[in-house]
Amino acid sequence: MKPEIITKGRLKPINNYDWTNIKLIASDMDGTLTKVEQFDSELFDTLDRLATAGVKVLITTGRSAGWVQAIATYLPIVGAIAENGGLLYWQDDLKPRFMSDLDFQEHRLQLNRVYRILKSKFPQLEESPDNVFRLTDWTFEVAGLSLTELEHIEAICNGEGYGFTYSTIQCHIKPIHQDKGLALDQVISQHFPDLKPEQILTIGDSPNDESLFNPEKFSLSIGVANIVRYRDHLQYLPAYMTSKFEGEGFRELAELIINS
């Protein structure tokens, strides 16, 4: 059953804004571009139409470096940020661009150490199958974990000097300052220095997108309708919300931008 949508506070409907000037969309992937965990043909059409309209799309996802290199290759987008801000793939140069300096061999050992600590306290944890393709973070499945358990896991990670976040799909152990918002800030500075804040919008659906909703950095932030399930657990809420869920919400927004 889909959660009831209750619009209050800063969650304004997207049809209350004129989206004429948008030049860049920074979008989460799972739960925002997908529909029941998959891309559909309508998404490819929407991305093509945005590109034709002169609107660039940059994906910002928690998915692994291995997955995201393929995504940046095959989708009509300018690039993709992987591992919640760990690295960037640019469509015309698919070498990974790391957002911070890491000793990767030692870093992976430390991430594994923290995961083993969590596993000893929560034996039900299941390592994500894509860890073999990861460079900057370590993931395990979010399914079956309560909010109380997630908060306890975050406290343990912080105590070990690491950050933690989660999405509708996975939990992430990561460097404490690694997040989508910081990485996007760097990308905008380096690749889109002429864009004004009112020409950039961010969109997501879950706690690992929260840094994209920080109003001090991104004034035009949007949550697809499924964000409501997390609204009481986020420090930052998006400024606007679609009326539709998942990929249908993204397309709802895209239609407004294209038609404007």
Rank of each mutant, 00 (worst) to 15 (best):
G144Q: 11
F104W: 13
S219R: 13
T61A: 03
K121F: 04
D18M: 02
S243I: 03
N214E: 01
T148K: 14
A80H: 03
N112E: 11
D101E: 15
F122Y: 15
F104C: 14
F104N: 13
G161A: 07
S206Y: 05
Q105D: 13
A80W: 01
K2Q: 11
I77F: 00
E149Y: 07
S260A: 15
L33P: 03
L182P: 01
T168W: 06
F98W: 14
F39G: 01
R97D: 08
G247L: 07
D232E: 15
R49L: 14
I169Y: 06
K217D: 00
L24R: 08
A143T: 10
Q105G: 04
T168M: 11
R108A: 15
Q124L: 11
W19R: 12
E248F: 06
F39E: 03
L147E: 07
L182E: 10
T52C: 05
Q186F: 06
P13H: 09
K12S: 11
T139Y: 00
L75P: 03
E127T: 10
L184E: 03
I22H: 10
I117H: 12
V36G: 05
D194R: 00
F122H: 09
Q190N: 12
K180S: 03
M1W: 07
G159S: 09
E160H: 12
D232T: 14
I153V: 11
S64F: 10
V36R: 14
L50Y: 08
D45Y: 11
D103E: 15
C157H: 09
L47C: 08
I200D: 01
L220M: 09
A143L: 07
E37K: 15
E252P: 12
Q69F: 07
S41H: 12
L58N: 04
C171S: 14
D209A: 06
P129V: 07
D137I: 09
G159R: 05
A239Y: 02
E210I: 12
T165W: 03
E216F: 02
V114S: 08
T136A: 08
P3G: 12
F250V: 13
D194G: 00
Q91S: 13
A26Y: 01
L33S: 03
T32W: 09
V224C: 06
A26E: 01
S146T: 15
F44E: 05
L102T: 08
Q38G: 05
T165H: 06
N226C: 12
G62T: 13
F39A: 04
